[in-house]
Simulated scan of single mutants.
Amino acid sequence: MTRNKQTIEVVTVSQERRRRWSAEEKAALVRETYEPGMSVSLVARKHGVGASQLFNWRKLEREGALTAVTAGESVVPASELAAARAQIAQLQRMLGKKTMEAEILKEAVEFAREKKWIARSPLLDKDGQ
């Protein structure tokens, strides 16, 4: 007579706190999903992470969001970035206008000197500076 032994596994559900993953840990998990023979679901089960969360981290990595955090750079809102870019463009236009004005004035001084409309000043050298 043989006795059949049955193994029963008891799974208890406990309230776990939300885990915090560092940027390095996230990047390592994402890299692991790209290894041969690995899948997102397999890596997620192996490390106890939701597959959807891992897919989200992969998306963030493609966009460069994970590397910006690891580089220690501060993150600014998109509205501030857009405002800063607009201000930079405005300042570049103003600089271009001022540079053009300076070139025009230099040409005018040279032309006036050739016509002897402007007397040479002892304070200015030959280059007009």
Score class of each variant (00 low, 15 high):
residue 91 L to F: 06
residue 121 S to E: 13
residue 122 P to G: 12
residue 107 E to C: 00
residue 62 R to V: 00
residue 120 R to A: 12
residue 84 A to D: 14
residue 102 A to Y: 08
residue 65 A to F: 05
residue 117 W to L: 15
residue 129 Q to A: 14
residue 94 M to G: 03
residue 105 L to G: 00
residue 3 R to D: 14
residue 56 N to D: 14
residue 38 M to S: 11
residue 15 Q to L: 11
residue 8 I to C: 00
residue 52 S to N: 12
residue 85 R to G: 01
residue 76 V to K: 13
residue 54 L to T: 04
residue 96 G to S: 14
residue 66 L to M: 11
residue 23 A to Y: 10
residue 108 A to Y: 00
residue 86 A to F: 01
residue 95 L to S: 07
residue 21 W to Y: 15
residue 19 R to G: 07
residue 102 A to R: 15
residue 81 L to G: 06
residue 39 S to A: 03
residue 14 S to W: 06
residue 88 I to W: 03
residue 98 K to L: 15
residue 34 Y to R: 10
residue 66 L to K: 04
residue 22 S to A: 08
residue 25 E to V: 08
residue 70 T to V: 13
residue 2 T to V: 14
residue 90 Q to E: 15
residue 2 T to K: 14
residue 69 V to H: 04
residue 99 T to H: 05
residue 24 E to H: 09
residue 6 Q to N: 08
residue 128 G to P: 09
residue 118 I to F: 05
residue 4 N to C: 06
residue 123 L to R: 09
residue 116 K to V: 06
residue 17 R to W: 04
residue 125 D to L: 06
residue 66 L to Y: 00
residue 18 R to H: 06
residue 118 I to M: 07
residue 75 V to M: 01
residue 108 A to I: 08
residue 75 V to Y: 03
residue 17 R to K: 13
residue 24 E to W: 02
residue 83 A to E: 15
residue 66 L to N: 06
residue 100 M to N: 05
residue 55 F to M: 11
residue 35 E to I: 02
residue 82 A to I: 12
residue 54 L to R: 00
residue 96 G to F: 03
residue 15 Q to T: 10
residue 12 T to C: 13
residue 11 V to Y: 02
residue 121 S to T: 13
residue 12 T to D: 07
residue 8 I to T: 13
residue 55 F to Y: 12
residue 93 R to C: 05
residue 24 E to M: 09
residue 25 E to M: 10
residue 37 G to Y: 01
